[in-house]
Design a protein around this nucleic acid. Sequence first.
DNA 1: TCAAAAGTGTTAGATTTACACCCATGA
DNA 2: TCATGGGTGTAAATCTAACACTTTTGA
Lengths: 222, 222
Amino acid sequence: MTFYKEHSKVWVSVDVIIFGFDESKLKILIGRRQMDPGRGEWSLYGGFVGADESLDTATSRVLNGLTGLRNVYMQQVGAFGSVDRDPGERVISVAYYALINVSDYSEKLRSEHGLEWVDINHVPTLYSDHNVMVSMALKMMRQKIKTEPISFRLLPQLFTLTQLQRLYEAVMGEEVDKRNFRKRIKDMDFIEKTELIDKKMSKRGAALYRFNRKMYNDNFKL
Amino acid sequence: MTFYKEHSKVWVSVDVIIFGFDESKLKILIGRRQMDPGRGEWSLYGGFVGADESLDTATSRVLNGLTGLRNVYMQQVGAFGSVDRDPGERVISVAYYALINVSDYSEKLRSEHGLEWVDINHVPTLYSDHNVMVSMALKMMRQKIKTEPISFRLLPQLFTLTQLQRLYEAVMGEEVDKRNFRKRIKDMDFIEKTELIDKKMSKRGAALYRFNRKMYNDNFKL
DNA sequence: TCAAAAGTGTTAGATTTACACCCATGA
DNA sequence: TCATGGGTGTAAATCTAACACTTTTGA
């Protein structure tokens, strides 16, 4: 295939914005860069794309190595290709965001990798163009959450309506009216009330809800 | 930089979905592939990303080579990286869409490159994953046109409200009510009526409008 | 004179927003 | 008993959608 040979190859990496939700706050996982250039700077977690893996596969691999989780929800944010975005070599990077349930993620693994959860509203300066990736990811997630039930990726299987509302508010960055919010949820038949009561957050107790994926797929997915 | 060296490099290309609007139809530019593999198949136009150019620069270069135009409106669609998406070698491609005013594009250049305008609703089977790129591009453009004034990239500087409506309908793939549409346009102060009358389309003549970019940037852009 | 496209308002329905009080319980 | 979070409905305002006739003029 001599045609291809005339052109130059580049390194391609993936960088992942891992979102989690905890105590009413939307957070992302970042760590101190372990390698030069930029050693010690805050950075997204990433990895190079191997010759025999797709971009999605590479991202899954990176996520799995980091969290031990599989089938994590993820969406591509876009490709970042400024010539000098990486101070070392020419590297084109494809950003993804991923949503995980914080309690599925072992604290042990987190600290082994030297990762920290930081509030999306207080992300420090990150390596290279990673701050741009983060803000694009957030923008896309906001868009997505309006039309698809992705909240459930960030919550435990059972959750209260208050938790769901706090999550929505954290993603959108604005408060919403409790009654209007609950009215909207009532119209979504794929969010099911269970008989269970959560007593952790209040003395009275709050009904626990669950996302019925099958109902959603059968009746609501377009 | 030994660190990078452990990993493999890949070819990266850009592929462009060039949208144009003509005779009430939204179209894209495609051509017969001139090279193996896939010689003769319908394909998007693209090019490899050079060592010293960003993804945006590469796309601009490709667009300029094809149309002679500069400062063309373009947006990234995303990165496509299946291992076997290109039957020849491993190539990761970043898709962009671009909007051009058909009358700015010389027929001569078009035919020299062997390109054809095809109706977005009748795109033939394209090389590799190009059909997926096209449908993602359309989806993104639909989203964009709702919140940003990109229609003007597809229209001549002066246009009638009927043209603007036909364009909107072609992009959205559905008809809209004429009176409601015109009501909405009236609220957009950056779409200015001129004193000029177009007589090409009707005996009575239709008022020509113009997009006031400065007004938009100053007062409407967020 | 008539065909063809331009232009123009009103009303009903749907959606969205604002808003305040009682309930249950554990400490 | 009281502080805390859970739970509930209504009315006004805004936005969206439906709808039909008159105007101009070149052929």
